[in-house]
């Protein structure tokens, strides 16, 4: 079952600037862990950010459960965004809030302005937050401030914040670039296990090819705004890598 379909997506950041994405097509099935790889500047992050319109696409379609995302208005966009979790390279936590408040902020899409002013989250949301914090192994850090945690712990808060949305799609933007190799692997493993458990497909851009091979079931290779590879990790051989990374792999 197709969860997300991107058709001929083009992006340029300003009218006179270069095209960052030059017509990309891709499909995410309901049980995919799709990894996007490619050299720096290929447009991986831009592609992910177009899906929830943190970046406005210039043209093309992004069909998510029957809705064309680029054409929805502001209200519709909020509804779409709350159905997509996002995990960031720099975690993007609110440093001066507690771990619990950071996780609960994942429910803001479902919380009215007045309630969110006073941080009155539904009791069920707090219950859910505790469950998820257990799963990511942070049950001892509930009341700690986010800036007291280590990098790996902070990213686990980021994962919890995305999962509490009960998303229909998980967007993951370079989740491991700020982490050391061992913790990178733990974090990827955690994203994979928990997304499978929740039945959420994952769209993940990642520059570490080995992690992409080990954790994904489908790989898309981008180079200079164009898709140059698509297939299962088993087909990602040396010649495919050379094509994606051009002269970078020698």
């Amino acid at each position: 079952m197709i969860r997300l379909e991107v058709k001929d997506l083009k992006v340029r950041y300003n009218a006179s600037g270069p095209e960052v994405l030059k017509g990309v097509n891709l499909t995410v099935e309901h049980d995919d862990f799709l990894a996007i790889i490619g050299p720096s500047g290929a447009g991986k992050s831009t592609l992910i950010r177009c899906i929830n319109r943190l970046v406005e696409p210039t043209s093309g379609e992004i069909i998510f459960e029957g809705t064309n995302i680029p054409s929805v208005g502001r209200h519709g966009l909020r509804k779409i965004r709350r159905n997509m979790g996002m995990i960031f390279q720099e975690f993007n936590l609110v440093d001066r809030m507690s771990v619990m408040d950071n996780v609960l902020s994942g429910r803001l899409g479902y919380t009215g302005n007045l309630r969110s002013l006073l941080r009155w989250y539904a009791r069920a949301d707090i219950h859910k937050a505790l469950e998820i914090l257990d799963k990511v192994g942070l049950s001892d850090f509930v009341d700690k401030r986010a800036d007291e945690l280590s990098g790996g712990q902070r990213q686990r808060v980021g994962i919890a914040r995305a999962l509490i949305q009960e998303p229909r799609l998980l967007l993951v933007d370079e989740p491991t670039s700020s982490l050391d190799p061992k913790i990178s692997r733990d974090v990827m493993g955690m994203i994979k296990t928990l997304s499978e458990e929740a039945g959420v497909p994952v769209l993940c851009c990642i520059h570490d090819v080995q992690l992409a091979i080990d954790f994904s079931n489908k790989i898309v290779g981008l180079q200079d705004g164009l898709k140059v590879f698509e297939g299962p990790p088993s087909r990602l051989d040396r010649s495919a890598l050379e094509e994606i990374y051009a002269f970078e792999v020698l």
């Binding site: 943190l54 909020r78 965004r81 996002m86 960031f88 993007n92 936590l93 803001l108 919380t111």
Partner: peptide
């Protein structure tokens, strides 16, 4: 701007 992106991405309003 990181946290701003994050709150937008969960579907937060301008006020949120």
């Amino acid at each position: 701007t990181g946290p701003i992106e994050a709150i937008k991405a969960v579907g937060g309003s301008r006020f949120q």
